[in-house]
Design a protein around this nucleic acid. Structure first.
Lengths: 193, 193
DNA sequence: CCATGTGAACAAATTCACAGCA
DNA sequence: TGCTGTGAATTTGTTCACATGG
């Protein structure tokens, strides 16, 4: 969150920002900001604020973004295609290297700058590309099977977009992404007034 | 989160569940579960556990899901189409009633069971359908303009999927959804080991 | 006897107040 | 003087221990 904000500030051409200004952007107290940022080292300049560039670089490293991660997308339906083409999934730190499906009508077709491959190829492709993150965007009915296939490739982490509970496995870091929950939050906020 | 879990349990045919069993599913302590659920009233049966159905109904109501919410999607690119067709956005509580774009090649075309309309029609459509939630899936370059257009319709809440900071407005509840952040978390987890 | 619900004890996070440096 | 950095006070959240009821 902080890194995202710092990147915006860099785009605006700023070189420093005070904890008070950050606090306003995040609706937090300035002390909270200072306590948080102090965790990462002493990047503040007394009387001035925080030097944006070195702090951003530190957060970048802490998040492991200095190493490039290669992604494979499993399930090239609407959501899979959207994610494969998503700018945030294709930049200096992340790159979608392949998309997989079982539907013979999709296999071989171009989606964006990616050719959809058959799921049977996934083992080989993950090995050849050194992909380390799997994006699970298959329909609910086949999500569990795709999860097992992804684990079998030996991939490091899996992002699950299917609305299905998946069992934890020690050999992979599983992160569930529930798009629905944001709608429910909106619904709650509307009620709350 | 609890509601989602209770729905799963209902599908499995269970009628009650203990705080200990819930704790295992969520990797929390059973006392934590009881403290949480106690906030919503006394739904527990001593010696047995929690009655799933009434508790689920209570959470359903608290989230405002007993009233049906109508959604409009602005920006019918990959992501907009995926969200418009997403099952979690089309059920008893939510329904995507329209999708908008400016691209004349898209306007008039069918995407799923929706006909893409021109953004100029949005005021009328929101009024006629009583839509209360706007889903902003436009590209970064036009996200701010689309945000203003959505606010002008008088809609209650906006879910922003564009990776762009939008200014808070008192007349609308803005909820930013950042898909990229999940990848960064995965990256961090991989580094952390 | 089993599992909930809750005051009391404990731990964690936030805020306050101010020392310290450009 | 302005803003960071941090111990101390305060608030918030979690865990413990046990009373309560089916």
């Amino acid at each position: 969150m902080y890194l995202r904000c710092l990147r915006e500030l860099q785009k605006e051409g700023r070189e420093t920002i005070s904890s008070r200004d950050l606090a306003n952007r995040f609706h937090l107290s300035s002390v909270q900001i200072r306590k948080d940022l102090a965790q990462f080292g002493e990047f503040g300049i007394r009387g001035v604020g925080y030097a944006i560039a070195p702090l951003a670089q530190r957060l970048h490293e802490l998040l492991g973004l200095n190493h490039k991660h290669r992604l494979v997308v499993v399930g090239m339906g609407n959501l899979g295609c959207a994610l494969a083409a998503y700018a945030g999934f294709n930049d200096d730190s992340f790159e979608v290297v392949a998309g997989f499906d079982v539907d013979p009508r999709k296999v071989g077709s171009r989606r964006g700058n990616l050719v959809v491959r058959h799921i049977e190829e996934i083992d080989r492709v993950v090995r050849e590309t050194s992909a380390d993150i799997g994006v699970l965007a298959a329909p609910a009915s086949s999500a569990l099977a795709c999860y097992e296939v992804l684990i079998a490739t030996g991939i490091s982490a899996i992002l699950n977009f299917a609305p299905v509970p998946l069992p934890d496995r020690p050999e992979v870091r599983l992160k569930n992404v529930d798009l629905r929950v944001h709608l429910e939050e909106a619904s709650f906020l509307i009620r709350a007034g």
